[in-house]
Nucleic acid binder design. Structure first.
Lengths: 341, 341
DNA sequence: TTGTAAGCGTTATCAG
DNA sequence: CTGATAACGCTTACAA
C-alpha cells in the first residue's frame, strides 16, 4: 500500500543506525531502566544524529493514554472575545502552565453555543480529561456539560451547580476580608451591590461573607440588587443610582465584582460623592482596569496561579482515580485608593 | 497480546452492529460520497447507539496529518501571567476561534525561557504547524524559534526580525490615523513618546507613521525616548516628566502603546495639566484599561479578530503549500475623551 | 457501491 | 539486558 508521503525518520532507522533492535530504541528513549548505559548512549546519539522524534500519534494509539488535557473556555454567545473577563484569560494561562509542569499538554477550545458545544475528548482519545472554565451565565453550556457520559473526567470553574466538580475562590472569606477592612477604616453603613439569586454562585457566597462580617460587627447587612441581563458595569452604575435615589444613608459599597464596583464608583463620582472620603468602595476579582480607575479600586483578588494548579491537580487525581485535593482557592485583599487610610 | 485495558467501542463493533464491513463504517462516517444513503444511515444509527467515537490517534497515525495547530505564547521570563498584554490574550482567543472555524484544533503552550522553549510539534506529529505569539522583548525565544529546522510551518506575531514569517498590525497607517486626528482637533505641537530602536518593530513603525503625518502637515516630528527595561506605564510617566522638565512646548502626545500613553496621562494630570483641554493624548492598542482612565483614552485599535484569522490563514496556506494571504492587520481609531472635540 | 487487506509507528509481552 | 512479534484502531488502495 505505497501511500505517497514524505519520508519520516522512524525508530526503525534509529535502530539500524545504532545497531540494535527497534524495541531497544523505544525502551532506551523512554528511559526504561533495563537498558544498559552504553546501549542507551548509542541510541540517544543515533537519534540525535538522525533528528529523530517519536510520533506521538503512534505512541498514544499504542499506550491508550494521551498525556493531554482539554481546556474548554465557555464564552457568552456571540460575545466579543476581548470582553471576556480578564481573570479567565489569566486562569487559562495558569492552567496551561500547571498542566505543563505536570507533563501534560493542553488542547484549548472556545465554545459559546449549542452548535459548538463539544466535550467528547476522552471518547475520541484527544485528551484524558477536561477543564471547563466559564461564566455561569451561559446556562445552555452548563446543561450540556452536566449531561456528559458517566466516566468523563472533568473539573470546572464558574459552575452554577453544586453538583458539578467545581473549584472556586474562597468567596465568603474574601467578602469578609473586604467588609472587615471597610469596618476597620471606619465605614459603618456598608451596602452590598450584588445578587443572591444570580446563577453566579460566587455572588451569593460573596454576599453571605459580607453579611456575616456585618452581623459580627452588630450591623445590619443590606443588599442593593443588580438588574439582570445588563453589562456588569452598567449594573453597578444603576444599582448605585438606585441606592442614592432611595435616600438610604450609606458610606460604603461592597461590589460583588470589580466591574460592578467600578460602575458604582463612576456613578458616585459623577454625582459629586468623594471616594474614599465620603464613601468607600471595594470590589472583588482584581481586574486590571481596577488599578487604573480614579481612585484605584480596593479589591479582593483570587490567586489565579493557585486556581490553575488546583484545577489541574484535581483533574489529574480524577484521571488516576485518586483522592482529589482542595477545591477552594485562597484570596487576598488588595488595598488601593478607594478606601480611606 | 491481551493488554488489560478498558473495553472500547471500535469501528469494528459498529460494522458488526450495522451489518457492513469496517471500512464501510469509516467511509460512511467520514462522509465519503460513494456510500449509499441507506447504508450510511444504518451506520450512523449503529454508531450513535453504541456511542461510538473515532480514535483520533489511530486516524492521525494512518492519515499522517493531525488537524491540529500549535499555539505558542511567549511570555517574559518569570512574568506574572496576569500582566501579559491583554491584547495577546484576545489574540489567543481569536486564533483558537479562527482555527476552529477552519476545522483545526489548537494545542496551546506558554513558554518563557530556554528550559521550556520547544517547537518540534511537526516532527512529533503533534501539530501540522505553529503560531507563535509574543513580545519581541524575549529575544532568547526569537533566537530559538528562528533556528527551527527548514520545513517548519509557522507564523508569528511580535517578531523582532523582518526575516520571520510575521503578521502584524498596520502600525504606520494607525499612527497616521492617530496623528491626523490630533491635527484635525487643533493640536499642533505633538510629541511622540516611544522609541525607534526598541526590538518592538511596531514602535518604530508607529513612530514613522506619526512622523509622516507631521511632515505632511508641515510640522516637525519630535520623539521623546522611553527608558529601557521599565514597565511600560513607568516609561510613559517618566518620558512625560522629562518632556515637561525639558521646557519644550507641546500640546499633544502620541504614545506608541496604550500603557505608555496612560502613564503619560497620569503624569500630566498629576502635574495639573488639563487633558484634553491643554494637552491631547492618544495611545495605541485598545487595551481595556484605557476605557477606564480619566479621561478615557483615545486610541488606535487593531482588529484582533482579523489578526487571528490572518495568522491561521497564512499558516494553513503554508501547510498546504499555497500562496500566503495578507500579513497586515487593519486598525481603527477609537475616539474617547483624551482628545478634545 | 462495498469488501479485503495492507499498513501507519509505536509500546508491551514473551522468550531467550 | 535485548530481540521478535503482536497488537493499538483507523484510512485507503485495490479488487469485486
Amino acid at each position: 500500500m505505497p501511500d505517497k508521503r514524505p519520508h519520516r525518520v522512524t525508530s526503525f532507522d534509529v535502530a539500524e543506525a545504532a545497531g540494535v533492535s527497534q524495541s531497544t530504541v523505544s525502551r532506551a528513549l523512554a528511559g526504561d531502566t533495563s537498558i544498559s548505559e552504553p546501549t542507551r548512549k548509542r541510541v540517544i546519539e543515533a537519534a540525535a544524529r538522525l533528528n529523530y522524534q517519536v510520533d506521538e500519534n503512534a505512541a498514544r494509539l499504542r499506550r491508550g493514554r494521551t498525556g493531554t488535557l482539554a481546556l474548554v473556555m465557555i464564552c457568552r454567545p456571540g460575545q466579543d472575545r476581548k470582553d471576556l473577563n480578564p481573570f479567565y484569560f489569566a486562569l487559562l494561562g495558569s492552567t496551561c502552565a500547571a498542566a505543563s509542569a505536570r507533563g501534560y499538554e493542553v488542547l484549548v477550545a472556545f465554545q459559546d453555543s449549542p452548535e459548538n458545544f463539544w466535550g467528547h475528548y476522552q471518547e475520541r482519545r484527544k485528551a484524558d480529561g477536561m477543564v471547563v472554565i466559564g461564566t455561569s451565565e451561559n446556562t445552555a453550556a452548563w446543561d450540556y456539560f452536566g449531561k456528559l457520559p458517566e466516566g468523563t473526567n472533568w473539573v470546572c470553574w464558574g459552575a452554577p451547580s453544586e453538583e458539578f466538580p467545581w473549584v472556586r475562590s474562597d468567596n465568603q472569606a474574601g467578602a469578609m476580608l473586604a467588609t472587615r477592612h471597610m469596618l476597620v477604616r471606619g465605614y459603618r453603613s456598608i451596602v452590598c451591590i450584588g445578587s443572591e439569586t444570580s446563577p453566579q454562585r460566587q455572588f451569593k457566597e460573596r454576599f453571605d461573607g459580607y453579611a456575616a462580617a456585618m452581623q459580627d460587627a452588630g450591623l445590619e447587612p443590606f443588599l442593593q440588587r443588580i438588574e439582570r441581563g445588563l453589562p456588569r458595569e452598567e449594573q453597578g452604575r444603576r444599582a448605585a443610582a438606585a441606592l442614592i435615589e432611595s435616600g438610604r444613608p450609606f458610606d460604603g459599597i461592597f461590589g460583588v465584582s470589580d466591574e460592578i464596583a467600578l460602575g458604582a464608583l463612576k456613578e458616585l463620582t459623577s454625582r459629586g460623592f468623594r471616594v474614599p472620603e465620603d464613601v468607600g468602595v471595594v470590589g472583588f476579582d482584581g481586574v486590571r482596569a481596577g488599578a487604573w480607575s480614579i481612585p484605584p479600586l480596593t479589591t479582593v483578588e483570587s490567586d489565579f496561579e493557585v486556581a490553575g494548579s488546583l484545577l489541574v491537580d484535581r483533574l489529574i487525581a480524577m484521571i488516576g482515580g485518586q483522592e482529589p485535593s482542595s477545591r477552594r482557592v485562597p484570596v487576598r485583599l488588595v488595598v488601593r485608593g478607594s478606601t480611606r487610610a
